[in-house]
C-alpha cells in the first residue's frame, strides 16, 4: 500500500530532465537523487517527501537508456510513478531496479498536483482522497509480476 502526495507532470518527461547528463559522472543513488527532476522542476527536490507519488502523462521516461533515472527517482523517496504510458527502456529499468510503476490513463488525466492518493499496488486500485475518485491501473503481464515479486531482475535470475 502506498499513501502519498502527488507531484504531477505532463507528457514525454524525458530522462534528461529526470536526471541531467551532467550528473552522470557518478552512479551513487544519494548523489543522483539530489538532482532529480532539476531541469523540469527545480523545487521538486525540496518538496518531495518519503512515500510521495509522481503522476505523469504519456511516454514517461523517454530518451536515454540511463538507469540512473529510476535510481534517482527512488533515491528521492518517491514510492510510485503512475503514468498514462511509459517509454520502454524506462519501463524495464524501473521493474529491474525495484521502482514501482503503474500504467493508468484515467489517473494520469484526472489526478491533480498535490492530490493525496492511496494505492494498492497489488490490486492496482488507486483512490484519490481529495476528489473521492477511484481508478484502476492496467495489470502487469504475469512474467513482469514474477520479476517484481522476486525483487528485481537479478534476484529473479538467481532464483531460477
Amino acid at each position: 500500500m502506498v499513501f502519498g502526495n502527488v507531484h504531477k507532470y505532463g507528457d514525454n518527461v524525458d530522462t534528461d530532465v529526470i536526471i541531467p547528463a551532467r550528473y552522470l559522472n557518478v552512479s551513487d543513488k544519494k548523489e543522483l537523487s539530489k538532482h532529480c527532476m532539476e531541469d523540469i522542476d527545480s523545487a521538486f527536490i525540496k518538496r518531495v517527501k518519503e512515500g510521495d507519488i509522481i503522476v505523469a502523462g504519456k511516454n514517461f521516461g523517454c530518451g536515454s537508456s540511463r538507469e540512473h533515472a529510476p535510481i534517482a527517482i527512488s533515491g528521492t523517496g518517491i514510492a510510485l510513478v503512475i503514468a498514462e504510458s511509459f517509454a520502454r527502456i524506462f519501463y524495464r529499468n524501473a521493474i529491474n531496479t525495484g521502482l514501482a510503476i503503474m500504467e493508468c490513463p484515467e489517473a494520469a488525466e484526472k489526478v491533480q498536483d498535490g492530490d493525496m492518493l492511496i494505492v494498492d499496488t497489488e490490486s492496482g486500485i488507486i483512490e484519490n482522497t481529495v476528489s473521492g475518485e477511484t481508478y484502476r491501473a492496467n495489470p502487469f503481464p504475469d512474467f513482469i509480476t514474477e520479476i517484481i515479486n522476486s525483487g528485481g531482475l537479478i534476484n529473479y535470475i538467481k532464483n531460477k
Binding site: S65, R66, E67, P70, I89, R92, N93, N96, T97, G152, L153, I154, I157
Partner: peptide
C-alpha cells in the same frame, strides 16, 4: 536497455 538488463 538499462544497465541491469545488460549486467544480466
Amino acid at each position: 536497455m538499462g544497465s541491469t538488463d545488460l549486467a544480466a
